[in-house]
Amino acid sequence: MVVSLNPDLSVDLAPENVRELRLANPIIAASGCFGYGLEYSHVIDVQRLGAFVSKGVTPRPRSGNPMPRIAESPAGMLNAIGLQNPGVHGFIKKYPRIWETWQVPGIVNISAEAVDDYAMMARLLDEQPGISAIEVNVSCPNIARGGYCFGWDAEMSADVTRAVRAATTLPVIVKLSPGAVDIAEVGRAVEAAGADAISLINTFVGMAIDPRTRRPILANVTGGVSGPAIKPMAVRMVYQVAAAVGIPVIGMGGISCLDDVLEFLFAGASAVQIGTAIFVQPSLLMRLIDELSAWMIAEQVSTIGEIVGAALPKIDTTTNGAMEAMQVAAG
């Protein structure tokens, strides 16, 4: 019997990229829930994380939406922050030189409303120190296409991915929108367009109305739903995309405990992002790393790779196995 006393929690999220994206463990703090890393640096040991993703950065500074910006929902929350951020130039002025001194990989999340703007930001970030990867948020309206969300369409998602890919040699992660009609198709399209990894899912568009005032609670009317409430949909989408692509998948959506982390890994994710749960318990991030390590020892699992996709249909050379995998990917 082999007893693994020191399980290897490390994961490689950009195996084809020479600039690499090697994480000490698969626990990543999600975009929008962790500021720029500094906000939590006095509350938890940020350096222990596998990585963290910055709040969404845009081509120009944005002051965000009017208040109220958040509302609670059953086992979840809605947010309509409106990408309040200092813009890519403001970001570059402040954070790369801080992140450069950190051990933990910092990933920049970028959002734009035009393909050229995504490319412009990727070009600027490519030359900066302290940035380990770019996460491309395609859940934005495409102004050139009448505001139709990039991420809902495979071709538009691929256009953004190609433009970013051409503008940087940094590892590129494309963050998929759950609003896509066929999320596996979007996954395949961004893989073909040069993405190193795929992360999913972003929030679902939702709304809440105050029964007393008879008006929407959020000033923006609609907002993104996150939290435990969206987890089953997220697991399903990660499972479908992981079956459809060959590049690493990063799963997220309502993760609140170790069992949730394992669920996403079994569904085919090589790493996970934690978002809303950080607001409630910042220490959860540290606990998940410790608990995952303890679980691997107890279960005699020596590498993360051994369990990634455990729930996926076995892909064998027989016609039936291949058919089953295709059906999963097709939903």
Partner: peptide, 12 residues
């Protein structure tokens, strides 16, 4: 408020 630490910008 959500995070209490200046990260989410929900309480501006």
């Amino acid at each position: 408020m959500a995070c209490g630490l200046g990260a989410c910008l929900g309480c501006v």
